[in-house]
Amino acid sequence: MNAFRLAGDMTHLLSVVVLLLKIHTIKSCAGISLKTQELYALVFAARYLDLFIHFISLYNTVMKLVFLASSFSIVWYMRRHKIVRRTYDKDHDTFRHHFLVLPCLALALLINERFTFREVMWAFSIYLEAVAILPQLVLLQRTRNIDNLTGQYVFFLGAYRVLYILNWIYRYFTEPHFVHWISWVAGIVQTLLYADFFYYYIMSWKNNVKLELPA
C-alpha cells in the first residue's frame, strides 16, 4: 500500500470521525444530508459483500467493518435518536436520492468488470458513491450557517477522493497490471463534483471568513 492510498483512507476515516463527533458528542446533525448518508450505507453494503468470503488483509477487513458500522449508525442516529433527529434539516434536504439508485444499477448491469452478482454490485457501489455527495452539496448550498464540523466533514471526504486519484496514478506506474478504469472514471467524476466546494472552502479559510456556498 502506497502513501497516497493510506493518506486517502485516513482522510476518509477522519471525515467519519468528524461526523460522528458532531452527531455523538454535540448531538447535532444540522447541515448533514440524510439522503447522502443513506446512499453511503447502501454503497458500503453493496461493495463489501465479499467481506467474509474474500480476505485481503486485516487492515482491509477492519476498515470495511468500520465504514459499514459507522454509515449505518449515522443513518440510525439521524432517523431514530430522539435528540439528534430533531436537528435534521429535513425541509432543505429535498434531493430525490432514490432516482440516483436505479440508473447506477442499470449502468452497473451494462458496464462491469465481469457479469457476476458481486462484480455488478461492486460496479454499482462505485457509480453510486460517485454521485452520493450530491444531496449533501445541495443541502450545503441551502444552509445559511455552515458550521466548522460540517465543512470539515465534506472537505475530508473530498480530500479522500483526490488522494485516491494520486494513489491510482502511482499504482499505474508501479504495478503493470493495475488498470481499473471503472473506478478511475467514476472516481474522477466524483472528485470533480467537489471542485466548487473546494474553491469556496479554501477561500473562506484563506480570508478567515465563514464558509458559505452561493446558491
Binding site: D50, K64, F67, E113, R114, W122, N167, H180
Partner: peptide, 10 residues
C-alpha cells in the same frame, strides 16, 4: 484466480 477480480481498495 482468473475468475475473481481483485478489489483491494476500500
Amino acid at each position: 484466480n482468473a475468475d475473481t477480480v481483485e478489489h483491494d481498495e476500500l
